[in-house]
């Protein structure tokens, strides 16, 4: 198994700041906007964007939530491994809100399809956007594209993109892992 660093901590930091700026540009003071992280790996991205938006961009009352999509997945009973759910915490109704879904890597698009169905359970948002750190293009199974994009990556199917977060920000990195089999 060989590993290549796609983005180092500095590049990730620059990208997160750029994405925050783009969000501010489109959503102003975020009064009608909610940021929803997709469990499990979207939460880390959400937390970091939240920090930048509240401390550096002066956004107050930023509404955020965590969405688990396990019960909406289309591969229930088709996998060898059972699916295990994570916590969902959305303490508000999404009726007429502007929703930004957040995940780390966009691959086949099936998770996002599940998230779009799941989000309907909380009301009818006025619009839904998608923010991802990494877009693995040419690997989509569904017609889904991100609205905000960190970096586009060409990875073949036996490669895995892994985002590693650390307490110490300077150790953050995104790896491209080549599987041998």
């Amino acid at each position: 198994m060989s590993t290549k660093v796609l983005l180092d901590s500095k590049e990730i930091d620059i990208i997160l700041h750029r994405l925050s700026c783009q969000l501010v540009e489109n959503h102003g003071d975020f009064s009608d906007t909610v940021l929803i992280g997709i469990q499990p790996r979207g939460i880390a991205v959400l937390k970091r964007l939240q920090t930048i938006l509240t401390t550096e961009k002066g956004i107050t009352n930023l509404a955020t939530g965590q969405l688990d999509i396990t019960f909406y997945r289309d591969d229930f009973r088709r996998r060898d491994e059972p699916l295990q759910a994570n916590t969902t915490s959305i303490d508000f109704i999404l009726e007429n809100k502007r929703v930004v879904l957040i995940d780390d890597v966009l691959f086949t698009g099936r998770s996002i399809r599940a998230a779009l169905t799941a989000i309907e359970s909380y009301g009818r948002p006025s619009d839904i956007e998608l923010l991802v750190l990494i877009d693995r293009r040419f690997s989509r199974n569904l017609p889904i594209q991100p609205t905000y994009l960190g970096k586009q990556v060409d990875a073949v199917n036996n490669e895995k993109v892994l985002v590693k977060w650390h307490e110490d920000k300077s150790k953050n990195a995104i790896h491209l892992i080549q599987k041998n089999n």
């Binding site: 019960f71 909406y72 229930f76 759910a85 169905t117 909380y122």
Partner: peptide, 23 residues
């Protein structure tokens, strides 16, 4: 119990339904 915790959250949503067992 762990799974029921998640479903308890589901049944307190405005739409109290998930599509898992549709087949």
């Amino acid at each position: 119990y762990e799974t029921a915790d998640h479903f308890k959250e589901v049944i307190n949503r405005p739409i109290k339904k998930v599509p898992s067992l549709r087949d």
